[in-house]
Simulated scan of single mutants.
Amino acid sequence: MTAKAPIFIAYFHPLKVEYSDTTIITLLKQGSEKVFETVFKDHFKNLHAYAYTFLKDDELAEEVVQNVFCRIWEKRDQLKPEGSVKAYLYRSVHNESLNYLKHQKVKASFRVYYADEMENASNLSSEKVMVNELEKHIHQAINELPQQCRIIFQLSRFEHLKYQQIADQMGLSIKTIENQMGKALKLMRVKLAEFLTIMLFLLISR
């Protein structure tokens, strides 16, 4: 079972002992709660302010930073002993903030799309039920995709980005993007197979 991240509070006085980036990462990989708290105390305030520039909400910014630190602790054995800890933290908060905003944008797109669907079917109560059911399962199918797979699918289908643009944005090869999209489409087909009849009915009834 993965050890839970140590409980921490948002604001502390800076610690007197300073470690090199290599030492910090080495000690984190060894499970040092003291070093983990040191990093949190030293960087939380500025990271919170950085997240706020994206999210414009104090609580959301705090949640994003907390999530980043929790993930670092949970996956500390995967940390690499080279590079700047500060740069890694800012990059992680940047990505976490953008992923949150993209998720909200996708949710908004679904609301608009299905609001139109519901309006067009306003006089057909049975169709309303089917649209609601389909919407629920599409949401669920997308949310159950692996994280990288889900982000690539959303960027392609809802942001309308080309594979090369997605590859450049995520720092991945275009082959990886193609493979992940193929995987996403295959998983979506499997998860929504039982609703094929409903989707066909909705298309034919238009």
Rank of each mutant, 00 (worst) to 15 (best):
S84H: 07
L15N: 09
K29T: 05
F69N: 01
V93R: 07
Q165P: 04
N123Q: 12
M118F: 14
L98A: 11
M199G: 12
P6A: 07
L28S: 07
F44W: 15
K56I: 07
L202V: 03
D57I: 02
T197C: 04
I7F: 11
T26M: 05
E194F: 08
S156M: 04
N123A: 02
E159S: 10
E96W: 01
A108Y: 02
I166P: 05
S97E: 09
L203R: 13
A115N: 05
S125L: 13
K128Y: 02
I72N: 02
E127P: 00
F201Y: 14
Q148H: 09
M130I: 07
I9M: 05
H139D: 06
K29E: 08
L202N: 07
E74T: 13
F195W: 14
A184R: 05
N179F: 11
T26N: 10
I174V: 13
V68T: 09
D42A: 12
E63A: 14
K4Y: 02
I138D: 00
T2G: 09
Y88W: 12
V65C: 03
L79Q: 02
I198T: 15
D42M: 14
G171A: 08
Q154H: 03
N132P: 00
R111F: 08
E74M: 15
K186G: 09
D77Q: 13
K191L: 02
F195A: 06
F69D: 00
P146M: 11
S173H: 12
D42S: 14
L161W: 12
L155E: 08
S126D: 14
A87D: 09
F110S: 03
A193N: 12
I138F: 01
Q78N: 12
E159W: 03
F54V: 06
Y114H: 10
S122C: 10
N123W: 07
I198F: 03
L28T: 03
V65E: 01
R157K: 15
F110C: 03
E82M: 13
K183R: 11
I166M: 11
H137E: 15
S122T: 00
V17A: 11
I9E: 09
I25D: 01
I25Y: 00
Y52T: 02
V106Y: 03
V35K: 09
K105G: 02
L27W: 01
S109C: 14
P146R: 11
F44Y: 15
L196N: 14
P146T: 04
L196G: 13
V65D: 01
R76Q: 08
A184I: 02
K186I: 00
Q147C: 00
A51N: 08
I24C: 06
L185S: 13
L79R: 05
H43G: 00
K191P: 00
Y52L: 05
L27G: 01
L161I: 04
Q169N: 04
P14V: 04
I151S: 06
I151D: 13
L172D: 03
A184S: 10
I198R: 03
V112Y: 11
V106G: 01
H103E: 09
Y50E: 04
H137Y: 12
K45N: 12
L203E: 15
S97G: 12
D57K: 07
S92A: 15
K4E: 08
E144V: 01
N99V: 08
L101G: 02
L196V: 02
T26W: 00
I142A: 04
K75D: 05
L60Y: 03
S92I: 07
